[in-house]
Design a binder for these strands. Structure first.
Length: 268
DNA sequence: ATGGTTGCCAAGCAA
């Protein structure tokens, strides 16, 4: 059995527990990282997840907004819940999991969306987003010769031209502005991270993980963006055995506007 | 150029 990690912005974990359960039963990832759980820790739905064999759960939740959860079939060792930009937002959680005979550090991120106006001088939410990504420079892929790391989550930025339905039309739209895409790529490369989705699926190919709710027919118009990402340290990237974007999940009953991304590794 | 939808929670705000 290969080691598998999935990431999914669930947009309310309690509302979508039936979808989470369905997903876990069908795909059985070792680790599932959820974002936008919108769920305080004292009411997180542990029970149905444990029932499915996911007994190791680390959460960082708050009422109404944000929130991340890392759910695992293998033992998890919490490393930290970091308060990026010291706003008290629950947007990060890291934990160690064992695979291939070594510890792998898994970072689960929910980067701020950044509001509508892509000008940090007049839009504090966009300022926050840029500051958040800048602070991610302090999260390197490798912290020692034997260290392996994975960084997943909703990064709310579509870096490549083929990560959006129209590069030209989205250049001034938050998520695809040059200051964001260059900022994210600079941070990724500086940290030594490999963009695993793009190692598996060529950058010439359009690739989306999110489709707006504000669309008559998301599948027909296909105006998507790749906002969700899987990054790894270089050694782990070499062990990658495939990445799957579960586009079908966008068509499930009462779906999230994001779909799961699953990465498989040839280690156990 | 505008408005389109969803989820929080019960009015707008955030996405």
């Amino acid at each position: 059995m290969p080691f598998t990690v999935a990431t999914w912005n669930i947009n309310s974990v309690r509302l979508r527990m039936p979808l989470v359960e369905h997903f876990l039963q069908e795909f059985q990832p070792d680790v599932l990282c959820l974002q936008e759980t919108k769920c305080p820790d004292d009411v997180f739905p542990f029970k149905p997840l444990r029932k499915l064999g996911y007994e190791h759960i680390q959460i960082s939740g708050q009422k109404g907004y944000h929130g991340v959860a890392t759910i695992s079939r293998r033992p998890l060792e919490l490393v930290e819940k970091r308060d990026f930009c010291t706003k008290g937002d629950c947007r990060h959680l890291s934990a160690n999991v064992e695979a291939g005979g070594r510890k792998i550090l898994v970072h689960n991120f929910y980067v701020p969306a950044g509001g509508d106006e892509p000008d940090p001088e007049i839009n504090p939410k966009f300022r926050h987003k840029l500051d958040f990504v800048a602070e991610m420079h302090s999260v390197p892929a490798t912290e020692g010769p034997a260290a392996a790391s994975i960084l997943v989550g909703d990064l709310n930025i579509a870096p490549l031209e083929t990560d959006v339905w129209s590069h030209r039309q989205l250049l001034k739209v938050v998520s695809h502005t040059p200051v964001e895409t260059e900022g994210l790529e600079t941070m990724r490369k500086a940290g030594g991270w490999v963009d695993l989705m793009r190692r598996h699926i060529p950058p010439e190919e359009k690739l989306f993980t999110w489709w707006s709710y504000r669309n008559r027919d998301w599948a027909a118009s296909d105006r998507g963006r790749r906002l969700d990402h899987v990054w790894t340290s270089p050694g782990l990237a070499d062990a990658m055995n495939g990445v799957e974007v579960l586009r079908a999940a966008r068509g499930w009953e009462r779906p999230s506007d994001h779909v799961p991304v699953i990465a498989r590794f040839d280690i156990d």
